[in-house]
Every structure is written in structure tokens, then in C-alpha cells.
Design a binder for these strands. Structure first.
Ligand code: NAD
Ligand code: NAD
Lengths: 224, 224
DNA sequence: CCGACTTTGTGCATCGGTTCACAAAGGGCT
DNA sequence: AGCCCTTTGTGAACCGATGCACAAAGTCGG
């Protein structure tokens, strides 16, 4: 009934997926001392269309000024709050092999709101090592570590064969957000969010389009 | 005119993105000696709904048998062909740091149709090293290496600041498929496909839902 | 204080994708 | 051969997302 209902509490999934993109562009602008930005410019920086950007932002409220644009700092704050980045999140990486190590050493990981709070592996060779200043703990300690460190997001970087079992265990201790790098479809209760990153799938999609470009009737060999 | 037109040559993007998932499930089944599979079972293995799976497959042609299901081997072949995996693709990894190294050492990368054909970096410390059996070449050689090895897909794993420049150079020598790990929006001509993998965005999306679960009265649902 | 100009926020048409539900197709049993 | 059972392939309704186009809102110069 009240006509001014700033936060809808029903932000479309597609919008949520783009907010981090806007946030990144805004951080860049803030660093370069830009105080105010139009939807046109911000959209360009984020690689989207300006109508889409305005609609996305309208889901969080009316934070722009007509004729002027958006206040960069204020918008950074609003988006950060909406995404839950005003608190910090303890992340555990399970499986400290090639990939897990790269992730652990990655600085940008930690940058905004996220903190690698634990590394866990099953290999006795690896357990006890210090990587990126963190001690690698044994998989037997998985539940204890998660509870002790207040981990709420788990990154799975184990071999595919171990992923479901580890997943079941972390779900059992109450973790409801998982980022999965193993090439398997995880089975979880629907209270749990799983996002997957699958390199192989990305390459296959590229290959599909590449093949089509090469084979199609129109050879689009454009020089820019 | 001819009523049986098996391949539509206009496969929806959403379908393309799921074909690799089906392919993986099918490979698993083939290995376990399963000859035939119903849409119901294959859908379950791939984590999708069976109507969606059937519609997806119908875009490639009528490869099922009513009352029976799909022949596993045959479907593997058809999907592989559609995705362009019957040829092999030479991939170059540019930026051999934490992430680039992990990718280079990753076996599953090579497994189906893809071959890491070159590693390129700018750091004199790294150039000349042998990683995963490959010599790391200097960034000055980028264009020459791409041409010499017939690279058609480039994986960008440089720092964000270098990504656009490397991107411009590979596009200039004719590469039209790029997998980008750097957290920047690449600007490319629209003949070029860019797919991005962005860990930080994935975590932020998880954080958004995690926050909502904790704070809101209604438990949010997930999508894998 | 006003009027011209800029830019937001959104209603609406459209589009692509998902899901349901069922007729058509094929296999196998008797 | 004929019938029943299973499962595909798809028409059609539905749903969320996109993009256009513009009225509303606000700024700024005079
Ligand atoms: N490396 C890549 O570039 C890459 C790319 C895409 C996907 N992946 C996937 O990511 C995962 C990890 O890849 P990787 O290259 O780091 O593999 P890896 O073999 O180097 O590392 C796996 C690590 O997991 C540990 N592990 C095994 N079983 C475990 C368990 N039950 N609990 C905890 N830890 C366990 C191993 O000891 C090892 O340290 C794999 O599923 C792989 O398919 C990797
Ligand atoms: N490591 C991760 O887990 C991770 C996760 C997400 C995203 N990323 C992104 O992936 C990229 C690589 O990350 P990283 O951790 O491997 O960084 P890194 O610093 O370890 O490696 C970057 C490598 O690129 C090389 N390089 C720099 N400029 C170059 C140029 N102009 N041409 C060729 N090579 C060049 C450097 O010499 C270095 O070897 C970064 O953009 C990072 O933001 C990394």
C-alpha cells in the first residue's frame, strides 16, 4: 500500500549476478576519484546496456538523481550491503592441490568481504604444510574446523571422486553455500546453494561457437 | 521441403551450455557399460529436468527410440560432433602464474578434444621454464606462437591490468575464442567470443543468498 | 524563479527459455 | 499379428529477462 517501498526483497537472479560487476566498475571509479556516474557510463564500464543497469539498480531502491546520475560512494555502499559484503565471510578451501593452492594464494579472493579461514586436505604429504600463511588441516578435522572457524562458504577443489562425500559432510554441519570446481553434479538439499565453475564446460561452449564460425556459410573474418 | 531435417542449425544458447553436462554424464555411463539410457535417467545424472533434456536433444535431431531411450555411444558421438569435439583444439595459456600453472597441470583439461599447445608469460623468471612438459615462451613471441601452433582458443590468466592488451593482440592475429580469468570486462569486436570465469563474482552471489537465508523469514531456494 | 536540459525510473512489448502434458512412435509379449 | 506398455518429441502455456521509449524528476544557468 505505501507507495514508497524502497527495497523489494525480491531481486531477480539475473540482477544479483550482475551486481558484482557494477561493484567492480564502481570501485575502479572511486579509486580514480570519480564522484558521480551516469547509468550510461557505468553500464559501459560494466559491459551491459544502460536500460538494464537502471532496471537492475531500481530493484535496490531509488539511489540515483535525475539529471545527474549516481553517487559512486553511496552506490558502492548500497550494492555492498545488498550483496552482504559489509560483513566478512569465512571461506574454507577443501582440496589443496594445483587449483586449491592457486586459490589460497590468490589475493583478490580476500579483497572484499571474503577471508580464507581454513585449508583442508586428505593427503598426509600436504597436511601440516603452510600455504599462504595457513596451516593445512586434515580432512578428519573437517567438521571441527568448519565450526571452530565459523566457515559459512566452502570451496570444493578435490578430485571429482571425493567431491560428493565432502559435500555431504559440510552440508551435515550446516554449510549452505558451496562453490564447486570438481566436474560433478552435486546432490544437495534445496536449502543449499551450489555454484559450479567448470573450465571444461566453458571450453566446450567456445569450441561449439568456434566450429560454427569456421564451418558456417558466412566466413566472418573481420579485421576489427 | 524435405520433411526430415535433422539438424536445425539454430541451437539455443541455453542448450549449448548444457550439452557438455550431458556429455559428461554419458561418458560416465559408457564407462560403466550402460548401452541405453532414458531421458529420465540421463536428466537425473546431469541434474536437470527430463523435459528440458528431451527438448535440448531434440534440437540436434531425433536420436532417441520411443519406448526405449537413447543409445549411449551414439548420443556421445552426436553431442561431441555438435560441440566440435571430434577435432582437437589447440589452446594457449597466457599468464603462467598461480592459476595458469594449475590450469597447465590440469589433466582433465586435455581429456576431450583440447590440447594445451603453448604457455606464454612476460616474466623473465618464468620464461624458459618447463611446466607440464611445455616450454614457457616470451610474450614478445605471442603472435608467432599462436600462428605456429595453430592456436584457436586462448586462456587469459594474466593480472587484470595486462588482460586487455593481451586480448587485443590475440584478436589481431585472428583468435576468436577467449576464456578470461582476469577480473575485467574485455572489449572485443563482436565476431569474438569471450567467456569469463570469475571466482569473486561467484562468491558474491553465494554471499547474497547466504545473507538472505540468515536474515529473511523465507528460506531462499537454490539453482545449480 | 523559470525554462531548458539531462538523466533516471518504469510501463510495456518482446523474446528466449522452461515446464507441462499428451499424441505419436516403437518394442516386446502373448 | 495385435495389443499394451514405455518413452520420446513437441505444441502450447507460462515465466523471467531484456530493451525500447518516454514521462517524471531533478539540476543548472540565466
Ligand atoms: N587444476 C585445474 O586447472 C582445474 C580446472 C578445472 C577443474 N579442476 C577440478 O578441480 C579439482 C582439483 O583439481 P586439482 O588440479 O587441484 O587436483 P589435484 O589432484 O592437484 O588436487 C586435489 C587435492 O585434493 C586432495 N584430496 C583428495 N581427496 C580428498 C578428500 N577426500 N578430502 C580432501 N582433500 C582431498 C588431494 O590430496 C589433492 O591435494 C578437480 O576436481 C579438478 O577436476 C581443476
Ligand atoms: N589464482 C586464482 O585463484 C585466481 C582466481 C580468480 C581469478 N584470478 C585471476 O587470474 C589472473 C591470474 O591470477 P594468478 O593468481 O595466476 O596471478 P599471478 O600473478 O600468480 O600470475 C600472473 C602471471 O601473468 C604474468 N604476466 C603479467 N603480465 C603479463 C603479460 N602482459 N603477458 C603475459 N603474462 C603476463 C606474470 O608474469 C605472472 O606469471 C588474475 O587476473 C587474477 O585476478 C586468479
Amino acid at each position: 500500500m505505501s507507495p514508497s517501498q524502497p527495497r523489494d526483497r525480491g531481486i531477480p537472479e539475473a540482477t544479483v549476478a550482475r551486481l558484482p560487476l557494477y561493484l567492480r566498475a564502481l570501485h575502479g571509479m572511486a579509486e580514480r576519484g570519480i564522484a558521480t556516474v551516469s547509468s550510461e557510463d557505468l553500464a559501459a564500464a560494466a559491459g551491459v546496456n544502460s536500460a538494464k543497469l537502471r532496471k537492475d539498480l531500481s530493484h535496490l531502491g531509488s539511489y540515483g538523481t535525475r539529471g545527474v546520475g549516481y553517487d559512486v560512494e553511496y552506490l558502492v555502499y548500497q550494492i555492498s550491503r545488498e550483496l552482504g559484503l559489509t560483513q566478512d565471510w569465512a571461506v574454507a578451501i577443501v582440496g589443496v592441490g594445483n587449483l586449491g593452492r592457486a586459490l589460497a594464494n590468490y589475493g583478490g579472493f580476500v579483497s572484499r568481504g571474503f577471508r580464507v579461514a581454513a585449508l583442508v586436505d586428505a593427503d598426509p604429504e600436504v597436511v601440516g604444510d603452510t600455504i599462504a600463511g595457513l596451516n593445512v588441516e586434515h580432512i578428519d578435522e573437517l567438521e571441527a574446523v568448519i565450526k571452530r572457524r565459523g566457515v559459512s562458504i566452502v570451496v570444493l577443489a578435490t578430485p571429482a571422486a571425493a567431491a560428493q562425500e565432502v559435500c555431504d559432510r559440510v552440508v551435515a554441519v550446516g554449510v549452505t553455500s558451496i562453490l564447486n570446481f570438481a566436474p560433478v553434479v552435486l546432490s544437495v538439499p534445496d536449502t543449499v546453494d551450489v555454484r559450479k565453475v567448470d573450465l571444461s564446460i566453458e571450453l566446450q561452449i567456445l569450441a561449439f561457437h568456434e566450429q560454427r564460425k569456421a564451418g558456417g556459410p558466412l566466413m566472418a573474418v573481420d579485421s576489427q
